[in-house]
């Protein structure tokens, strides 16, 4: 504030004493600022802060939504620690996130390179975004029918190729990879767009210099594009990993947690405990644990990938 004041006002009447006019203006700024922040702030408080605090409170209670919450202390958490389905849901979600993120990021990076270097037409670039514009539920249902064991078109092709039909959603081995692939297909265009934007921010002269020095395309990509893209990549990873951990709709409209427990991902398990089995305290406790896990994952990503620093300066 003081440095700013020095720049704007070349000759302060008496250094050290705040001018009444400056103080007033600061207050005036605050009012205007509050006015502009208010819509977002109100939404944030009522739809995020209050529910989060209430969720944390409910996680220490036994609550079936029709009665009143009853304080039970750490009971929910100790029960979760011994709940094999909770640990199963963590493992299943982990498997999903791993497959989804690795594939999605790799493919998106490739697509972004193509958009950057080859496909300059807006039409093609726009077409890459099409799957992302579809609602998650629609995309899931579409694939659910196309991959159906009995009547799905994909299995028809597989059979024509002389291979045995695959129970994409029905078998325990395939259920999670199938859903990870569907969501990869849906999200990679959008992820590619974000990375592509990052690539466009890399100044062209860096590439010119590399070319002059005789760097191969692969060297350019590894030594220039990737390092300079890092802040964007970290942002993309943080957002997509958090989103990936929260997979729910695809599971809900297709396998519903099954076969056996193969797709009982953490969000679905929360929903099942809270809304199906009316155990809102238990569900809230798992949600709090998921919140902590995601906070930790985001922190580690930011810390070790140095997402808030850029190599461009």
């Amino acid at each position: 504030m003081t440095t700013l004041a020095k720049h704007t006002r070349p000759a302060p009447p008496q250094p050290g004493t705040p001018s009444p006019r400056g103080g007033l203006r600061r207050l005036g700024d605050l009012k205007i600022a509050l006015f502009f922040i208010a819509p977002a702030m109100i939404g944030f408080i009522f739809f995020y802060v209050v529910p989060t605090i209430r969720g944390v409170y409910l996680s220490f209670t036994e609550y079936n939504i029709l009665g009143d919450p009853e304080w039970v202390g750490m009971d929910n958490y100790t029960a979760i620690a011994k709940d094999p389905l909770f640990w199963n849901s963590l493992a299943v979600t982990g498997q999903y996130v791993f497959l989804n993120i690795v594939l999605q990021t790799a493919l998106a990076l490739g697509l972004a390179l193509l958009m950057h270097k080859v496909a300059k037409s807006t039409l093609i670039r726009g077409a890459l975004l099409l799957p992302w514009m579809m609602s998650n539920v629609i995309a899931a249902l579409l694939w659910f029918w196309m991959l159906d064991y009995q009547i799905g078109v994909v299995n028809q092709f597989i059979e024509w190729a002389g291979l045995p039909r695959v129970a994409f959603f029905g078998s325990e081995e395939w259920a999670i990879p199938t859903q990870a692939l569907i969501n990869t297909w849906r999200h990679m265009g959008y992820t590619a767009l974000l990375i592509f934007a990052g690539m466009q921010a890399i100044p062209g002269h860096v590439y010119e210099v590399a070319k002059l020095d005789g760097a191969s395309p692969f060297q350019t990509f590894r030594k220039i594009t990737l390092p300079l893209l890092r802040p964007v990549l970290v942002m993309v990873l943080v957002v997509t990993v958090i989103g990936s951990f929260q997979v729910f709709d695809t599971v809900s409209v297709t396998t519903g947690g099954g076969p056996v427990n193969a797709t009982r991902v953490i969000q679905y398990y929360i929903y099942q405990r809270a809304f199906t089995e009316s155990d809102f305290g238990y569900g809230s406790a798992i949600a709090v644990i998921l919140f902590l896990i995601l906070a930790l994952v985001a922190f580690i990503q930011m810390k070790f990938l140095k997402g808030n620093e850029s190599d461009l300066d």
Partner: peptide, 18 residues
């Protein structure tokens, strides 16, 4: 097999002669 019953309903599969 149970895995093949995820999706199309049992009644429809019956109607399809399976």
């Amino acid at each position: 097999k149970l895995e093949t019953t995820v999706g199309a309903s049992m009644a429809d599969t019956f109607a399809a002669g399976k």
